[in-house]
Every structure is written in structure tokens, then in C-alpha cells.
Computed example of a mutant assay.
Amino acid sequence: MTLALAVPVFGPPAAGKTTLAASLGQTPGSAVFRLREHVPETILAATATSAERLGWIDDFTVVTALRSYVDATVQADEAHTVFFDNFPGNGAQVRLFLAALRQHAPDCMVSAVELTVDVTTLYRRAFQRRVCHRCERDPIHDPRLPAVPSADDAQRCARCGGILHPRRGDAPRLLRARLNRYRQTADGIREAFAAAGVVVTPFDSGASADQTADAVTALLVRSSQP
């Protein structure tokens, strides 16, 4: 099963990137790459709570993790599509990303997706979003994956019954920092993809998660057709 399609998914915080990647990544032959799952814990811990460095990871660590992941995915030969959740995060990472694909999967097509959402919806989602420390064993105890609340108790996880908590990065100070960083880097991401001839397709993710997933799926089906 040759790696045929790479789908970078980027956008502002709370746009639904992780929800989209997780949903589409469940289809047979698909996988999801999250950078934080492939870098040392010490680096994650150093950037977790700093508004200035929040989530920033140096280029050497990025390219090492990325090349290792792409090479392992190609060698395993189990996925034809990989969704890159919230990656690349800037123009330099776009170039590292494309270089890694050229080296390890030269025939892989790239279809970039940018999720957009109005600011009111963004802040509402961030305020309401909860994570589960039981279900997501994050290496630095900073879960990121949105949890589904129980139908009987919105404060508990539908999967394990554990108590849900706000995500650390959704605290007002950190959320503002993450939003500002995205605004500063978004043009660079688009320009780097454009320079490489990769089309970036924007999607308004203000609708339901299912509607967004259906729209992106339709795009990918069209893109794969000769």
C-alpha cells in the first residue's frame, strides 16, 4: 500500500483541525501525524506553558521527527493517506515537510487544507472544549484531543467516565498567544505551498464536524481522480 496522499491540515486554534484529522484518519488505509507525539518529552515540557514559546519546536527536532515518521510509514506499507494534524506550522516547516516527502515518498501527492472559523465561534469552542486525562495519556500531562462528554453528565467522559478538564492551551492568555502566532505564520505557510505548486483549499469549519469532514472528503476524492 504505497503512500499516495499527504494532507496537511492547518488553521487557527479551535478551527477543528484535530477533530477533522481524527475523523478522516479512521478510514481504512489512513493515518494521522501529530508532531508532539514524535518529539522528546523535554522539548514538549519546555514549550507547554510559555506564551512566547507555546508549542514552538526547533527545526532540527521537526525534521528528525518528520523524516523518521514518513520513512517508517513508507516502510510499513500500511497507509496510502496521511493527515498531518496542525502541521506544517510555518513556512520553514512547509519546506521541510515537502523535502521529506520527496526523499521518502517521491510519488506522494499533497493536498493542503486550511480550516477557517469566525472569531466568535473560535472562542466559544475553546471555552467549551474539554479533554480527558484518562483516555489520552499525554507524556507531559497536557492532553490535546477533544473528549466527547457523556450524555448523562457533560462533565464526564463518554468513553471512560473520567472527569473532563479544560485544555491547558485554551486558557485565555495562551489562546490569545496561539491565535496571534497563527496570524503571523499563516501567510508564510500559504506562500511556501504556493511556491512549491501545492494548492491550499480553505474550508469554513463553522458548520458541524461531520459537514466539514464530508466537504474535505469530497475534495480529496476529486483530487485523486485522473
Rank of each mutant, 00 (worst) to 15 (best):
Gly162Lys: 00
Ala22Arg: 01
Ala31Met: 08
Met109Asp: 04
Val216Phe: 02
Arg53Phe: 02
Pro12Cys: 07
Asp187Lys: 14
Asp187Val: 14
Val62Ala: 04
Arg102Trp: 07
Val216Gly: 04
Ala215His: 09
Gln225Thr: 15
Thr2Cys: 01
Arg144His: 06
Thr116Trp: 07
His38Ile: 08
Pro172Phe: 03
Ser223Phe: 15
Pro226Trp: 00
Arg183Cys: 13
Ala112Arg: 01
Ala22Cys: 02
Ala186Arg: 10
Val110Thr: 14
Gly25Thr: 02
Val216Asp: 05
Ser208Asn: 05
Arg129Tyr: 03
Ala22Gly: 03
Ala209Asp: 15
Arg156Glu: 00
Phe60Thr: 12
Thr42Met: 02
Val198Gly: 02
Asp214Ile: 12
Val94Arg: 03
Arg130Cys: 11
Val221Phe: 13
Tyr123Cys: 09
Gly162Ile: 01
Gln128Val: 14
Phe84Cys: 12
Leu164Pro: 11
Thr64Leu: 14
Val200Phe: 00
Arg125Ser: 01
Thr201Gln: 14
Gln225Arg: 13
Asp187Gly: 14
Ser30Arg: 14
Ala186Ile: 13
Ala207Glu: 09
Ala126Val: 08
Phe84Asn: 12
Val74Cys: 12
Asp77Met: 08
Arg125Trp: 00
Arg130His: 11
Ala207Val: 15
Trp56Cys: 04
Thr2Gly: 02
Lys17Ser: 09
Leu54Pro: 07
Pro202Cys: 09
Leu115Lys: 03
Val39Glu: 03
Met109Ala: 14
Phe60Met: 05
Arg34His: 05
Glu114Pro: 01
Ala126Gly: 11
Val39Asn: 09
Thr64Gly: 15
His38Cys: 06
Val94Asn: 05
Ala196His: 15
Phe10Trp: 00
Pro149Tyr: 10
Ala14Gln: 14
Val32Ile: 06
Ala215Phe: 12
Arg156Val: 09
Arg176Met: 08
Leu66Ala: 04
Leu5Met: 04
Arg222Gln: 15
Ser224Asn: 12
Ala209Thr: 11
Arg159Met: 08
Ser23Asn: 09
Ser68Gly: 15
Arg53Leu: 12
Leu179Tyr: 03
Val9Ser: 00
Gly169Phe: 06
Leu115His: 11
Leu24Val: 03
Phe193Met: 10
Val221His: 14
Pro149Lys: 14
Ile163His: 10
Asp118Met: 11
Gln184Leu: 06
Ala51Ser: 08
Gly169Cys: 10
Pro13Lys: 02
Leu96Lys: 00
Ala45Ile: 15
Asp210Met: 10
Ala192His: 01
Ser68Met: 04
Gln26Gly: 10
Pro40Ser: 13
Glu37Cys: 02
Ala154Ile: 08
Leu3Gly: 06
Ile189Phe: 01
His165Trp: 05
Ala51Arg: 03
His141Arg: 14
Ser224Pro: 11
Gly55Trp: 02
Ala99Thr: 13
Ala99Cys: 06
Ala76Leu: 06
Leu164Cys: 10
Pro12Ser: 10
Asp170Gln: 08
Val113Phe: 08
Arg36Gln: 12
Val70Gln: 00
His104Ile: 04
Phe203Gln: 06
Ser205His: 08
Ala213Pro: 12
Ala22His: 02
Leu122Cys: 01
Ala99Ile: 05
Leu219Arg: 13
Thr18Trp: 08
Cys132Val: 09
Arg156Ile: 08
Leu20Tyr: 01
Glu191Met: 13
